[in-house]
């Protein structure tokens, strides 16, 4: 069942799509990821991941309206599917479960 498991980056992208709601298209996702993680996200990497997520059925996409920006090319908007949402919830549950059994967790401030 390896195929249904979420990788770390996949999870991040999926979360970003959910967070962006109506505005989730590739460039915006890259920007948002960069803003939150502080790491540079390459379009090529994100594009591959989006493609894979769609193959797994975790997201679905639709084409937007054509505008004068982007050389008149339409954007592809992504949306998290039901399966995607379940996948995200499960990932969160796994983490929460683990967090809950940690007794104390001190970050020492040096």
């Amino acid at each position: 069942m390896k195929g249904t498991n979420l990788g770390e980056f996949e999870e991040l992208v999926l979360l970003t799509i959910a967070a962006l709601v109506q505005e989730a298209y590739s460039v915006a996702i890259c920007d948002e990821l960069e803003k939150h993680t502080g790491r540079v996200s390459k379009l090529g990497v994100v594009h591959t991941v989006l493609n894979r997520l769609e193959e797994k059925g975790l997201v679905k996409s639709r084409m937007g309206e054509a505008t004068s920006a982007r050389g008149g090319k339409r954007k592809r908007y992504y949306e998290v599917t039901q399966t995607g949402k379940i996948g995200l919830m499960r990932a969160k549950e796994v983490r929460d479960g683990l967090w809950n059994i940690i007794p104390t967790f001190n970050i020492e401030i040096a």
Binding site: Y25, S26, V27, L43, H47, R70, R74
Partner: peptide, 15 residues
């Protein structure tokens, strides 16, 4: 199926 939005993305980055 992938061409149009990819072209658009690259255009956006280009601008």
């Amino acid at each position: 199926s992938l061409l149009e939005d990819l072209e658009g993305d690259l255009n956006e980055y280009f601008d």
